[in-house]
Design a protein around this nucleic acid. Structure first.
Length: 293
DNA sequence: CCGCGGGCCTGAGAGC
DNA sequence: TGCTCTCAGGCCCGCG
């Protein structure tokens, strides 16, 4: 499911119920997700207080009082749902209904403020890790990440430098978390469309020979920021799994220009093109051949 | 080092 | 109804 806007939406939902609260009871209802849970996972969480919850790319990072960070990744189908203990019998709750967990509710956090936070992940591509705060930046998963696209430092120059010399396609380059961290299939397609750049273009062609910025790189960096900010404002995109932590759907999918819109008319003003689906590296790409060059 | 294809899981939807 | 096939928002690994 989740790319940067969905993860950020989840972070904003978890923040008010996790920050300042203590893990009273933690349930890990199976031995693993994508990876086995860390050793003594439950014991290392119970009794600890969350001092803050942040995000790096598609990772959620909860700082806890022991000095460790709880790193959580949603994979393709992970979601969090927050209930209050006193709501557990509310009809219509899609998780933890009447106190009963559904098949893929793998982790439950019972917080000291009464919040019951359930992690659900049918495909189990998600995972949780505990890492010492001072070693987080050296963790291989975090260390390999490129720049945060919504950070101040991210711009055309940075993007051009990362793409310089890359023989691969722009689609593959933007999907590479080392080049820019947090985009996935949807937002790569959408950003390339906004920037009028073809997903098939060789990545190096947005940089000068010496790796400096170009108008294309500047436009692409701006398009990435714009599409991510618009999607966050809409609560992310809900195709099948993503929900906000209160169960609401995100609604950015109604604003897609190209993703999953093969055969429809290109919405770019004055463009008469038709959106096309192609396959790049086993994944679907959607774009307008008329206005993306 | 780089780029590509396969694999990890389950579920939804299409087609027969 | 029910089977089979394809596809899905992510990421790691091994191969050439």
């Amino acid at each position: 499911m989740p790319e940067l806007p969905e993860v950020e939406t989840v972070r904003r939902g978890l923040q008010p119920v996790m920050e300042g609260a203590r893990f009273v009871r933690v349930e890990a209802r199976r031995p693993d997700l994508r990876f086995p849970f860390p050793k003594n996972f439950v014991d290392r969480l119970e009794g600890q207080t969350v001092s803050g919850i942040g995000r790096r790319a598609k990772y959620l990072l909860a700082d806890i009082s022991s000095g460790e960070v709880l790193l959580m990744h949603l994979g393709m189908s992970g979601s969090f749902h927050v209930l209050h203990e006193s709501d557990a019998a509310t009809p219509g709750d899609f998780h933890y209904q009447r106190g009963k967990l559904s098949a893929h509710d793998h982790v439950v956090f019972h917080m000291s403020n009464g919040a019951v936070i359930t992690f659900n992940d049918p495909r189990r591509f998600g995972y949780m890790k505990l890492i010492r705060r001072d070693e987080l930046d050296k963790d291989p998963m975090i260390e390999a990440l490129g720049p945060e696209p919504l950070g101040n430092a991210f711009d055309g120059a940075m993007l051009a430098a990362a793409c310089a010399g890359k023989k691969t396609s722009l689609k593959a380059a933007l999907s590479d978390q080392k080049i820019v961290a947090g985009l996935g299939n949807i937002y790569v397609c959408e950003a390339l469309h906004r920037a009028h750049l073809s997903p098939k273009r060789q990545a190096s062609t947005i940089a000068t020979r010496s790796g400096a910025s170009t108008p294309r790189a500047g436009a692409l960096a701006d398009a990435i920021k714009a599409v991510l900010n618009d999607a966050i404002r809409a609560g992310g995109s809900s195709l099948r799994d993503h929900r906000q932590t209160n169960g609401d759907l995100g609604y950015f999918q109604h604003s897609f220009s190209v993703y999953d819109r093969a055969g429809t008319k290109c919405p770019m003003p004055k463009c008469r093109g038709t959106i096309k689906r192609i396959v790049q590296g086993t994944r679907s790409t959607f774009f307008c051949p008329a206005c993306q060059k």
